[in-house]
């Protein structure tokens, strides 16, 4: 089996994955910087080009490219899917996961439990809704896909004040009820789920490395895997509090999870890839 590791700059994570794939029945493991690729469409065919690269040589591609590359990755993923080349993130998912409001709607429509959430283009629309929330709330503003602010607001007065004080132009605002419970940050690799619980401290949310391992109930595990699948990810981080999903990120913090669980998460990924390729054949 052959795998292509497609990413930005080469990092320790890429090196870790490369080693793990090589040790797990993958005879050809290649890293490539996505900036080198060209997609050329001629007639009914599209060619994925980099000098010397033949994409058809690969059974799988591990995609570790930042979400802002969605406009390049999405057409590329079409090609990979058409060639039955496995990726851990499905086509359409870069668009979903790069746009937080779109991700929330996608999760909500799929029946994934979320905290009460309001999304608006004009922040002033929130003024008429301040009485509808239980406080505290989390307030996030976006300019394009970029999050410009994320803060916790304790009262209606603070929320109204926050809206009035927005200085720079924002395109979208998300207000979500804050769930008063520890945040469960889960690494999902196929059907495997590993959870680190992070508590609120006087200095804010505990660092991931200081959180504690928790075993999820069957129901919670199902919620987490479902959330990842709804967002098109076989490998993801799902954040949850009291059974309410707050975010899905199509990547995991390998170093922290490796240390916390004394597991080799790189190997788990490689094994998952091998399993998925086997299922396709």
């Amino acid at each position: 089996m052959n795998v292509l590791l497609l990413a930005g700059n080469k990092t320790d994570v890429i090196s870790g994955l490369k080693k793990a794939f090589s040790e797990n029945r993958f005879s050809k493991v290649t890293y490539l910087n996505i900036a080198r690729l060209n997609l050329i469409t001629k007639g009914t065919k599209t060619y994925v080009k980099d000098s010397g690269l033949n994409i058809d040589d690969y059974d799988a591609v591990y995609m570790r490219v930042k979400l802002s590359f969605a406009p390049f990755v999405e057409p590329l993923m079409d090609e990979l899917a058409d060639k039955s080349i496995y990726t851990q993130i499905k086509r359409g998912s870069y668009y979903i996961n790069s746009n937080e409001p779109l991700q929330l709607i996608t999760l909500s429509q799929a029946g994934v439990k979320l905290a009460k959430t309001a999304i608006v283009a004009d922040p002033r629309q929130i003024n008429s809704m301040v009485d509808n929330f239980s406080y505290p709330v989390i307030f996030k503003s976006f300019k394009g896909l970029e999050k410009t602010q994320a803060i916790v607001l304790e009262s209606k007065k603070q929320l109204s004040s926050q809206i009035d004080s927005l200085r720079s132009k924002v395109n979208c605002v998300v207000v979500r009820e804050f769930i008063d419970a520890p945040l469960q940050q889960c690494a999902v690799i196929g059907d495997n789920v590993f959870c680190i619980e992070r508590r609120m401290t006087d200095n804010g949310l505990q660092e991931l490395s200081k959180g504690r391992f928790v075993k999820l109930s069957r129901e919670e595990k199902k919620t987490v895997i479902n959330a990842a699948q709804v967002c098109g990810c076989d490998i993801a981080t799902v954040k949850m509090a009291k059974g309410h999903v707050t975010e899905v990120i199509p990547d995991i913090k390998f170093k922290v999870f490796n240390k916390k669980f004394s597991e080799d998460f790189y190997s788990l990924v490689a094994e998952n890839f091998a399993k998925k390729i086997g299922e396709k054949k």
Binding site: R36, N38, L39, I40, T41, K42, F69
Partner: peptide
């Protein structure tokens, strides 16, 4: 029918086009 087209993200990749 469309025109032959390419997509890239860096000057290095432009050479193929």
């Amino acid at each position: 029918p469309t025109l032959v087209s390419s997509l890239f993200t860096s000057p290095e990749a432009a050479q193929e086009s």
